[in-house]
Design a binder for these strands. Structure first.
Lengths: 134, 134
DNA sequence: CTTGACATTGACATCAGTGTCAAACTCTAG
DNA sequence: CTAGAGTTTGACACTGATGTCAATGTCAAG
């Protein structure tokens, strides 16, 4: 699969896919052409990355987090104290963000229901959908 | 209270407080000096704004959301369909962000607990604290 | 073979959010 | 009165994430 296909499936511009790769968030195989080639797994990863970027997570952290997921999925992950401390630090930042967003979400929901526009809420029902087009 | 005091209490640089005002997110009274003067309410608002910015909410939306909270607190808020649709749209974006962040949060917690660094989690216990220094 | 759609790299531009510096003014402390 | 700390405005710089353009290469269809 080529970069244009990935762009179509994820809604992420090819420019950004290359950018993410440049930032070390992605590794793309190359065909004999020199063209980048992607698998379905990569597509998933691209939309995950895009989502995290939109959520305000800096690319540096994204790299760490995605690597962490992989490591966590397999056996006991290695994790020196210094790294753990950094993670704990980022954790509070993330929890703050969640709190802020949750509050804003509730505000919007509240307004929408109280103004007889509750019908619009159903459209947003699938909020946690992984590959949300946004 | 002057801008420096606000900065100290919120951890937000004076430069940014002025910037937020310039973006229409804040309104500051002026003393005879010309100095900006703030109340406790303003302090609260500043840290709310800073939190939302960190959460990746663009300033335009922040303005709308904060105004919305005020309107929502009082009586029945006015809300034409077009605005409601825009809100519903932003809502799904916010829910996506929450989903992303929640997943990342869980990943970090998981790693931390599984690497005997669970002690660091207690430090982050007050995650939802309003005036989190971050 | 030619055309058109897509890819590659690299440079440059833009936008939001911040940092930093400068020149001038205000206030408080000594 | 003077020194130092804080404030004002305004300008310029920088970073991160993106958009856009240019020159060139690749490939599938006609």
């Amino acid at each position: 699969m080529k970069i244009g296909d990935v762009a179509r499936r994820t809604g992420v511009a090819p420019r950004l896919v290359r950018y993410y790769e440049q930032q070390g968030l992605l590794v793309a195989d190359r065909a004999a052409n020199g063209y980048r080639t992607y698998s379905d797994v990569d597509v998933e990863r691209v939309s995950r990355v895009a989502g995290m970027v939109r959520a305000g997570i800096p690319t540096r952290l994204i790299k760490v987090l995605l690597d962490l997921e992989v490591a966590s999925a397999s056996e006991a992950p290695a994790c020196p104290r210094t790294v753990a401390e950094m993670l704990a630090d980022e954790l509070v930042g993330i929890e703050d963000k969640i709190a802020c967003l949750t509050r804003s979400r509730d505000t919007i929901r509240d307004v929408l229901t109280r103004t007889e526009h509750a019908a619009l809420l159903s459209e947003a029902a699938a909020g946690a959908t992984p590959s949300a087009g946004r």
